[in-house]
Design a protein around this nucleic acid. Sequence first.
DNA 1: CACCGTCAAGTCGCA
DNA 2: TGCGACTTGACGGTG
Length: 417
Amino acid sequence: MNVGFACLSIGVYHNDYKTIRKDNLSDDKLIEIIQYNLESLENIIDYNIKNNIKLFRISSDLIPFGSSPLNSLKWWEIFKDKFDLIAEKIKKYNIRVSMHPGQYTVLNSPDEGVVDRSIKDLVYHAKVLEALKTGTSSKIILHIGGVYGDKLTAKKRFIINYLQLPENVKKRLVIENDERSYHILDVLEISEVANIPVIFDNLHHKINPPNLNKTDQEWINFCKNTFKKTDGIQKIHYSEQDSLKQPGAHSKTINPESFLEWFNLIDREDIDIMLEVKDKNVSAIKIKNCTNKNLKNQDLENAWAKYKYNVLEYSPKTYFLIREMLKDKMNLDPVLFYRIIDNSFTHPLSINNQINAIDHVWGYFKTNSKEKEIYLKKLEKLKQGTLTVKSMKKYLYGLAISTKMNYLLESYYFELI
DNA sequence: CACCGTCAAGTCGCA
DNA sequence: TGCGACTTGACGGTG
């Protein structure tokens, strides 16, 4: 089983995607942004290699206006060297990459203009995966689209438009059940006719199930049959509901107990699981550690190094508890480890604890007396309430960047929660 | 410097 | 009929 995450990662410097508004668009600006975004992609691929993550979704934002006439650049030629370099890494480390066009790519719309733009968008996605020299197991995941008051006709229109797609897109396209319109049976029916692999999404399924009483395991095994040899091993999406938000909203983090309970029922090892969750790579590593039968103490030490100042900020008590726990190298319990950490984030924040964490982080910087003076002044303002914790953390983040303090930059302290 | 509204894409549910 | 929700960074304007 491989587990992966989508698009962005926490604790990776320069991993974001820039874009541009129509009003101030120019080729020069586009080139500048694409260069930056490819750098981000390479940084995340490097992160995945370092952390042995074999499944990853590339953001559609990689090339701004990638499928619009507003971008007429031959970016795959202009940046061929960079694409080749990233392609080599993806191949060498056997990372399965995919892409997932957003909610505005609707292949079955009754509006021809929308369909036309959607086809162009799918072609753009295929072009990225081709520029990265990936095989046809690198998929483009698409939802069926709208219903327009007549689902049967809308389904037929999806199939007709699908059949008109260029061959290189068809080879990569897979379809997924959504939380509103097309449940897993709808998607399997379309698959049956058009011969398209199906991605099962557990949360969408929970919210929008067909009128047929089957377990997730049964549906996942039905979907398995839609994957041909050239499609690679079966891929599914796993996410959990954010209890405070509207149905379908992804949780901040994955709860290992919930995941394992579900995963044990699925009872499959020959499967790739894409996690859809706010904390991205953090949950991917968490699930990797919780399912690793050969877990080493060092794995949890590495995980702890990234979490520790977040935990300290919320609960010094938990901070010392985990430190004690990790001293016992014989009894590794990753599920308990993560339960305690995640539970600490439910503690109310207190300014004293936040300042305590800030002081610990400050301890990393070997600074001159002038810088120390600036820090102490800020600290005083913080205590008086005239400076926010957010501003202070931003200041420390700037210091971490300028002093290349990788230990801090790779931690979750500046980003999580 | 921080914060807020607007923009851009397509669909659907609700006044 | 038309607006808000969904998403997210850019950007212009305000405090």
